[in-house]
């Protein structure tokens, strides 16, 4: 049994739904968030997995919003309840927005699962960085040739990015079935490689913009 902080009602937290477990059956105020903040999956009562039923997630999110949004308690005029609801709602909002997008969800879950694992330093795609340096040199000598090379290079990066995404997706399915930690370190390496490729793509794009601007 726990006592509601606001109306004093003693109640046994419900077990049928994650929402039932946190709101007082009498005044509907939520109880305090555990000091060891629940992970984003646990908030909605989902099992941590890379694949997620996005419709079910949205449904949960709407149910939580209806029950916990501070505006629901606005008329109570009790700032403590409003603040409590606000704390919950910002956690629920962050959890929903992180889990909704596959890439964000992947990064979050990977970080969660590898929290205590030793930090690995994966090899970066050397051939890409070498090519990038060559193009940068070329920019000084022959602008037109460099622009052509940039265009080709940009296509190459895009396709590399797509390859890594496909690799990640297949690794995700593998982990969801086997939960083998070896899969996770492979994913971690792939994520780091992808981060490098994405930052490279941004640099290429910026260079292209600057050069086109300077040309005109």
């Amino acid at each position: 049994m726990i006592a509601c902080d606001f109306c004093g009602t003693e109640y046994k937290p419900g077990v049928d739904s994650p929402l039932e477990a946190i709101v007082c059956p009498n005044c509907h105020a939520p109880r305090a968030i555990d000091s060891s903040q629940p992970n984003f999956f646990a908030v909605f009562g989902f099992k941590p997995a890379f694949g997620l039923d996005e419709t079910a997630l949205a449904r949960s999110y709407y149910a939580f919003s209806s029950a916990l949004h501070p505006d629901r308690f606005s008329a109570s005029g009790n700032p403590a309840i409003i603040e409590r609801a606000s704390d919950w709602m910002s956690l629920v909002n962050e959890a929903y927005q992180t889990l909704k997008k596959p890439a964000d969800r992947r990064g979050y879950l990977l970080e969660l699962l590898l929290k205590d694992a030793p930090k690995s330093k994966p090899p970066l795609p050397v051939e890409l960085s070498e090519e990038w340096f060559t193009i940068q040199d070329l920019l000084m000598d022959d602008l037109d040739a460099a622009m052509r090379a940039l265009k080709l290079f940009s296509e190459k990066i895009t396709s590399e990015n797509e390859t890594i995404t496909r690799e990640l997706q297949s690794l995700e399915r593998e982990w969801d079935q086997s939960a083998e930690s070896a899969v996770l370190s492979k994913m971690n390496d792939a994520m780091k490689r992808q981060a490098y490729v994405v930052s490279l793509a941004r640099n290429v794009e910026r260079t292209q913009q600057t050069m086109t601007g300077a040309n005109q």
Partner: peptide, 13 residues
């Protein structure tokens, strides 16, 4: 009306 607690079942996110 929502904030006054008079309209229920409608909520702006």
């Amino acid at each position: 009306s929502i904030l006054a607690g008079e309209t229920q079942g409608v909520l702006l996110l």
